[in-house]
C-alpha cells in the first residue's frame, strides 16, 4: 500500500479512488455523494501471478477495476485444460453484473502477472442502492448499454457459423 500512498502524499486515497470511479462509464452518472461513499468503501487488492480471484460455480459478488497488471478469464477446455477467453489489463473494469445480483460464475478469473485492483463488494453496493434508489436505474442502463455494445461487436466480428449463438439482447 505504501507505494500507492507515496505517489502523491497530499491527496487522500479516497480522492484518488473517486477520480478513478468517475472515469468509469458504469459509475460516472451516479450522484456525487454516492460516488464519494463508494470511493470510501472500495478496497485495494493485490494478487500474485496464478492467484485465483474466483472459479466456476462461485458467486463472484465483487467488481474489480484493474490498477495495473493482467487478469485472465478462463474456461475448462478439452481435457480440463484452461482456455483463455479474455484478458483484462490496466484500467479495465469487470464484474458490474455481479454487483447487481447473485449468479454462479461460468469461468475462472486468475491473475497472470502481479496485479493490483480496486474492488467493491455487492454487500457494499447494495447499501448504496438502498440509500440512493436512483442509482439502480442508472446502473441498469449502463449494464444494458454494455450488453448491447458487446453483442453488436460480436455480430460484426463473428462469422456466419456462430450466428446461432447470438441474440442475448433479444432475451
Amino acid at each position: 500500500m505504501s507505494s500507492f500512498t507515496e505517489e502523491n502524499d497530499q491527496v487522500p486515497q479516497m480522492q484518488k479512488n473517486l477520480k478513478l470511479l468517475k472515469g468509469l462509464p458504469f459509475f460516472s452518472p451516479f450522484p456525487v455523494q454516492a460516488l464519494k461513499i463508494l470511493a470510501l468503501l472500495t478496497t485495494r487488492g493485490d494478487f500474485l501471478p496464478g492467484d485465483l480471484l474466483y472459479e466456476e460455480g462461485d458467486d463472484p459478488h465483487r467488481a474489480y477495476l484493474i490498477l495495473y497488471g493482467r487478469l485472465a478469464l478462463t474456461a475448462k477446455g478439452e481435457d480440463n485444460d484452461p482456455v483463455t477467453i479474455q484478458q483484462f489489463r490496466d484500467g479495465d473494469f469487470l464484474g458490474s453484473l455481479s454487483l447487481l445480483g447473485s449468479m454462479p460464475a461460468l469461468f475462472n478469473l486468475t491473475s497472470e502477472t502481479e496485479t493490483s485492483v480496486l474492488t467493491l463488494s455487492r454487500r457494499q453496493f447494495s447499501k448504496i442502492l438502498k440509500q440512493f434508489p436512483e442509482v439502480l436505474s442508472i446502473a441498469l442502463a449502463a449494464s444494458l448499454k454494455e450488453i448491447n455494445h458487446w453483442e453488436r461487436k460480436n455480430i460484426s466480428e463473428a462469422g456466419p457459423c456462430c450466428f446461432s449463438r447470438l441474440g442475448i439482447t433479444a432475451l
Binding site: 455523494q33 461513499i37 457494499q124 447499501k127 438502498k130
Partner: peptide
Amino acid sequence: QAVDILGGVDTLDIFFEN
C-alpha cells in the same frame, strides 16, 4: 471530511466502516 461525505445518509453501519 466525514460530514462532507456521510452527512445526511442513513446510519447504515457499512457506510461508517471506513
